[in-house]
Design a protein around this nucleic acid. Structure first.
Lengths: 203, 203
DNA sequence: AGTCTACGCTACGGTCGCGTAGCGGAGATG
DNA sequence: CATCTCCGCTACGCGACCGTAGCGTAGACT
């Protein structure tokens, strides 16, 4: 994306184009979180954004392309808290996840993305990309914990990741409990306790 | 549903009605798992099932009613394994869950249900009902474990449930790992280890 | 047997969203 | 200022589904 092309220029894009794109994406995200993928039609986006339907078609091939682009625009990698201890890092990360799942409207379209990914390869690729992105920091934190000796050297980082994130997602979308820091610190406690003595199968 | 009404009769329904209903539901489930909720239109169901569109409208008010009915027809409570130990019971239950999530086509419509539940009260109610149903056995098993002294008396069954089920669901729909009994027994090991020493917050 | 009920079929008007064409005007660029 | 690009608008044909009506027939009940 960046780094190719001629000397210094950042390709120089017509501000009208940027404005149109941004307006449309914003409106699309609104509709996606409010009414879901199916209702996010090109016509609806045109109406809500105030951008003409024809203009939208000038920028995106069709509805799926637009929706994919809108969802992709919400990607964000959580920052590495780096508190000094594995426990501190994990608590910070899970607390951030809980907050995002509760408060961020973008979180609402997670199930929609997963559902679409179940059938459409393009959505599947995006879903994979999103997950990889989001997992990067967590995995790094866990690996650092292993290097520090806070976890057994044979620990599988991906397994720990699933054990930590799984319950939070499950609570948000399946069971009824509250998703707060009380819960997330409890999850971190239990997983760390479990994994630490995990080497010798107790009893 | 049962138990009300007059003496012995099971209401006596015209076999043609039963046949129509069953055929339509089966076709609807096919379409749901193959192409998702949006594509499961009344017309499509009519074509695939061979049942006339007008007949479908005679039995269901509209598309959502049909889809809800189809999904509801897949509800099933896992049997209580009752192996004698908490660990044995949980291993059996999670292994069953893993198998279902991997092999049952009905599992594919879980994200669709969750997504729809995010916006539509009727789907939300069904989702809640489904989850409650599915959790009943697991919770009973955990409570039995507490009574037996295999878990601390102050254990929160719902919390343990989230810790067990969460990672399995997360792996199935978000991360890339395999969902098999190797993983599920590992989850049971870690959670039991964690919860057992959970009373005194280590370190 | 006769009656009653559910079904399949054809046909329809209506809505929604698709994606494109052609035009005039406004804004960006140099 | 002149040109070039992008945008908004109107208009259109098209296909997919919707949900209903009306009719004849086959199957179920007594």
């Amino acid at each position: 994306m960046t780094g190719a092309g001629t000397p210094p220029a950042t390709v120089r894009t017509d501000p009208r184009v940027l404005r149109s794109r941004a307006t449309v994406i914003a409106a699309a995200l609104d509709l996606l979180t409010e009414r879901g993928i199916a209702a996010t039609t090109v016509e609806a986006v045109a109406e809500r954004s105030g951008v003409a339907k024809t203009t939208i078609y000038r920028h995106w091939k069709d509805q799926p392309a637009l929706v994919l682009d809108a969802i992709a625009s919400t990607l964000q990698e959580p920052p590495d808290p780096d508190t000094g201890t594995l426990r501190g890092d994990l608590n910070a990360l899970l607390a951030g996840l809980a907050t995002a799942l509760r408060d961020s409207p973008a979180a609402r379209l997670m199930p929609a993305l997963i559902d679409a990914a179940e059938r459409d390869p393009a959505f599947a690729a995006l879903h994979r990309r999103e997950a990889t992105h989001r997992h990067r920091t967590v995995r790094a934190v866990i690996v650092r914990g292993i290097d520090r000796g806070e976890l057994p050297p044979d620990t599988d980082p991906d397994e720990v990741l699933d054990l930590l994130a799984g319950p939070v997602f499950y609570r948000r979308w399946v069971s009824t409990g509250t998703v707060d820091t009380v819960f997330t610190t409890r999850v971190v406690d239990l997983v760390l306790a479990g994994v630490s003595r995990g080497s010798q199968p107790l009893r």
